[in-house]
């Protein structure tokens, strides 16, 4: 089969297929029902439904431009910052439809934290970076409580020992990998229930990547994590379930092991075996 044929075949299959695999889980934390996302005229996410379970790591993979980041940004309504972006459908977190106009995005984003592709620490001290969230949400009653939150979060992010002597140094003075773990600590500090990670390792070197992956693995004890990645090995290493996106469609979802060894859908198989990416 040559490439053009493959693309034609792909389009045909997408428009005529439903998600393969079981989208439901036993104890869902987030329930996504028939989400569509449009940028102006362009349809970026086409009718996606999926459950996200408690304390699981869900990896979302797929070729670039497949809409996995857009989908991730629906989960804490970060898409609101893009003016032309319109989201419809239903998205339940704790039995509340967070896509409802009336939902206050501020507590939502505290509950559903986000770590970005490029480490983006605030141009402030390491301490201030982590303390910022608790401060604006009023989580600490005094300096002692605040210190405790900050130290704990840094500890959980595996950064405390590396920075404990220079908490006043600017966050931007850290190395790339440390910066990303600082961002994770910043997110943890507001004690979210869900953490969204948008290709958190794409800007990091392999050693820093390994550290962050290790961290993700540990974090799943306490948090639900949804991670977007373009590195399949990473998905295989850190996640329990994997969802495969293609051109705005959720093509297949299932236990990570199964997706990588015996994919059901032809597209998933093509992607896994490296025919496009």
């Amino acid at each position: 089969m040559n490439n053009d044929d493959l693309i034609k075949e792909t389009e045909f299959q997408i428009n005529n297929s439903e998600t393969v695999g079981n989208i439901h889980v036993e104890d869902p934390r987030i329930i996504v029902k028939n989400i569509n996302v449009r940028y102006g005229e362009k349809l970026a996410i086409n009718n996606v439904s999926i459950d996200i379970g408690k304390n699981e790591v869900l990896a979302m993979i797929g070729p670039s431009g497949c809409g996995k980041s857009t989908f991730l940004r629906c989960l804490n309504r970060m898409n609101d910052t893009i003016e032309s972006c319109v989201v419809d459908g239903e998205l339940y977190l704790d039995n509340e439809n967070i896509l409802d106009e009336k939902t206050d995005v501020v507590p939502l984003r505290a509950k559903v934290g986000m770590v970005f592709q490029k480490p983006n620490p605030f141009p402030k001290s390491i301490y201030e970076n982590v303390a910022y969230g608790p401060k604006i949400h009023g989580l600490a009653k005094n300096k002692i409580e605040l210190d405790e939150i900050v130290f704990n979060s840094l500890e959980k992010a595996g950064l405390f020992n590396e920075v404990k002597d220079r908490l006043d140094a600017p966050g931007t003075s850290l190395s790339g990998g440390q910066q990303q773990r600082l961002c994770i600590a910043r997110t943890i500090a507001v004690s979210p229930e869900v953490i969204l990670m948008d290709e958190p390792c794409s800007a990091l070197d392999p050693i820093a990547t390994a550290k962050v992956e290790e961290l993700i693995y540990e974090l799943k004890e306490n948090f639900t994590i949804v991670i977007v990645t373009h590195a399949m090995q990473q998905a295989a290493r850190v996640s329990q379930r994997t969802a495969y996106f293609h051109l705005g469609n959720l093509v297949e979802v299932g236990p990570t092991q199964k997706i990588f060894t015996t994919p059901q859908h032809k597209l998933t198989e093509s992607y896994i075996t490296g025919r496009f990416g």
Binding site: P107, I136, H137, G138, K141
Partner: peptide
Amino acid sequence: LREDKLLHSTP
């Protein structure tokens, strides 16, 4: 008020 329960907005 904050002594008992978290506030929506900081004091």
